[in-house]
Write a protein that binds this DNA or RNA. Sequence first.
DNA 1: GTGAAAGCGCTAACAC
DNA 2: GTGTTAGCGCTTTCAC
Lengths: 338, 338
Amino acid sequence: MRETTLRDVAELAGVSPRTVSNVVNGYAKVTDATREKVERAIAQLGYRPNVLARNLANGRSGQIVVVVPYLDTPYFAELLQAIIPAAREAGYNVLVDQTDGDPAHESSLVGRGARGLLFDGMIFSPLGLSQDDLSVRDPALPLVVLGERTSDGTFDHVGIDDVAASTEAVGHLIEIGRRRIAAIGDQPYPTGEAAQLRTRGFRAAHAAAGLPVDESLIIGTARFNRIDGATAMAALLDRADPPDAVFCYSDLVASGAIHTLLAHGLRVPEDVAIIGYDDIEDGRYGRPTISTISPDKGAIARIAVERLVLRMGSSTPVPGVELRAAHRLIPRQSTIGF
Amino acid sequence: MRETTLRDVAELAGVSPRTVSNVVNGYAKVTDATREKVERAIAQLGYRPNVLARNLANGRSGQIVVVVPYLDTPYFAELLQAIIPAAREAGYNVLVDQTDGDPAHESSLVGRGARGLLFDGMIFSPLGLSQDDLSVRDPALPLVVLGERTSDGTFDHVGIDDVAASTEAVGHLIEIGRRRIAAIGDQPYPTGEAAQLRTRGFRAAHAAAGLPVDESLIIGTARFNRIDGATAMAALLDRADPPDAVFCYSDLVASGAIHTLLAHGLRVPEDVAIIGYDDIEDGRYGRPTISTISPDKGAIARIAVERLVLRMGSSTPVPGVELRAAHRLIPRQSTIGF
DNA sequence: GTGAAAGCGCTAACAC
DNA sequence: GTGTTAGCGCTTTCAC
């Protein structure tokens, strides 16, 4: 049995397809009389507009895609959770893609144009891509980038001020009296921009306090996972002169580090204070709860969607801007105790 | 500047649109000579097929939607992470929807027909919906339901054997010598089927061991979150006769319960043993690590996608079946110590 | 305010 | 093997 079409409705109501379309979309003015006729016919036939046809006629899909490296990373899950309602409110459905941080996958996504796909715009949280990779993308694709990038002027970038946030985090450790502070998560290579900004903050806080930086206390990790934190912390504890505090580049890293410390019979924060980054829900319930930098995820989501909608709606190129969401330092048990 | 169309390619290559379509889709036989001509034209023009037009012509969108209650719940995030690659492999993109467990939102999703939307099928993990609500859905929508439901024969259901798994979990607590076992997470109302199956397993394990069930040790919670676990555990500790073990209906609940125990100065598992459910990544890194029931999420994802693809591809109604993925008990520190 | 008709760009009978 | 052509179901310019 064929689905009923707009044409069927028009016939039953004794009007033209044009009028039905007007009624359905709330366009133009339609007499109350005809509107009612049409609506009755729609109800009677159980008519539902065919989105596929509408998409073709409109040349847009009403969908945006959100691309994240990993979905099971709490930070991205929480971010996505915030983006979806924001997008829905703006009338867009959300497609989700995960890249596993694979640069090839990431470039193929940004490289392809909007038209080739079924989304009108993209919110992209890159991991494996360096700034250069990003600029080879299809310029016709409305794009908002999250995280630690800098806009080259052709897309928008939404993030918090990582250097400032990191400086605050390390400043907090200094304030509570720690002097041998380690950092876990550095990534001194092109795709590690996020990490490098945090490292910069680490140095800035030391400089501000007149403290020297022990370079050997800056530990690199391939990713920002628990296991990376656990491993790096173990390496730090193996040293003759372990640190009395650690700035971890994510809450997961912090969680892993704490795990190692407790397993070694050390106390947090008495022996080693720990501060993380991201404010994921986990950090609020572990033992100890994890001090952290909390980015305003709701704001990030709102701003990202808002800018993307603006880009998708504009026929002329929109200049890319840098947008900053708020962040704040949340001291918890892992630095200030119980 | 207009995007190049299939027609443009045909013109440049000196062939008909039909032939270009054949080349693009790998259909039918095309002479190597013409294929090459066409491919050269495609490359030269930078042609990309318009998915929107293709969708309309095909009458399908090539998308499936995955509906979960909450995205920031690790279990669902991990499940989604497994579903996305499985779907992509089958040639489908994944739309994501979260319902916040809102029954109205959930029914509106299942109630609307496939054609009204831009997905060809749905993988649905309901929370607020009872069995009855589910059966009012549009029968034309290919549907696979996850979690603890029973198929009414018009959709497939994929899940693990919850009663068996719960019985094993509680059996494990009994095996390690616990006798006063509590359960946190019961939901004795229509939408709480998941919880009720776990409670049934709780009873079954007691029965199998010849132990009586203390009904007052079965604690209900509105959701399966950390805060619910923390609160319920606190209530249990307020009693004159607290339990020596707790079966938590999710790892998050377990995590919350452990938090409360540690905060009260109790030891896990020495004073109270804890077992959870879901095997989320968190549970493998906390302190103590959480014993749990581990559902084979990869298998669930694979089976769900496979069945959905089968449904979407069939013109005649496919009888709904019950499909079971494997699960296994994973003892960790929270029951067997360090 | 409403109708007629021309697309949107692709697919797939149907011929040759 | 390839060309011709008629849709897929909607939107929308243009008249009236």
